[in-house]
Write a protein that binds this DNA or RNA. Structure first.
Lengths: 131, 131
DNA sequence: CGAGATTTGTGCGTATGTATT
DNA sequence: AAATACATACGCACAAATCTC
């Protein structure tokens, strides 16, 4: 088949259902087995589709349970100290474990003037500029 | 085998070589075939290891060529306007295409008081607080 | 310029282990 | 205890892009 790969096509359809609200946060998606049957693909292909959504922070695999639409937490305000710099990047597996963040969630990394580094999961914090 | 999965182990070794500078940005890594032979694993397993690094923004597959250590661009300073909020999240495939960002690169999303939204790839921008 | 080798991209099948229900 | 569902890992085949000669 020319054109878009199968797993991207499947991912796009599920993503659409999530972003339009047809699939609500916390809701269980069709299992890998169901996706296989629905789209007539191998399990690996169905899985790759959901893997894309996971890397975007939209869904999660829950072992023994199924695939669920991720519940997005509230973001608390974060103040950037004078002279500090802030970047965003993806965590290593160790950092994901340490800060309890799921796949597809970036980190805010704040570096203070004295080289001190602070890390904040980007799904629970936001920057707000007083004005 | 109990303990760490094989692909995570392989990824950790390569990641170490990258972060310590033994593998320099722009340098070509061993091909999938070489990784298979080196670690005695299936191609899929070697590939998953590199997939982890790609999701962290450290490496890239280049079709027909090989696997390369990603060159990290310089980050330009970004000023957050008064009353604006900034979040970081992963892009959709469409956004990756539109803003020309690779796998594993988050987006800065700035929302102004009038609801206007601006997007900045997080590998090319950073926030700096005057002081 | 072309032909072949190399290397990644996609897709399928199978087996076994582990966690949850 | 049994069924369900995801996690890891092996194998194979062919397509598409790149590189080398």
């Amino acid at each position: 088949m020319p054109g878009e790969p199968t797993y991207q096509h499947i991912a796009a359809r599920i993503r659409h259902d999530i972003t339009t609200g047809r699939l609500a946060p916390g809701q269980t998606l069709p299992s890998e087995t169901m996706l296989q049957q629905t789209y007539g693909v191998a399990r690996q292909t169905a899985r790759r589709a959901v893997d894309l959504l996971r890397a975007e922070g939209l869904a999660d695999f829950e072992r023994g349970h199924g695939i669920v639409v991720r519940i997005q937490p509230e973001r608390a305000d974060l103040a950037l100290p004078a002279g500090a710099t802030l970047i965003a990047r993806m965590p290593t597996p160790e950092e994901r474990d340490e800060h309890n963040v799921r796949e597809g969630v970036p980190l805010f990394v704040v570096t203070l003037p004295d080289e001190t580094v602070q890390v904040y999961p980007a799904d629970r914090w936001q920057m707000r500029q007083a004005g």
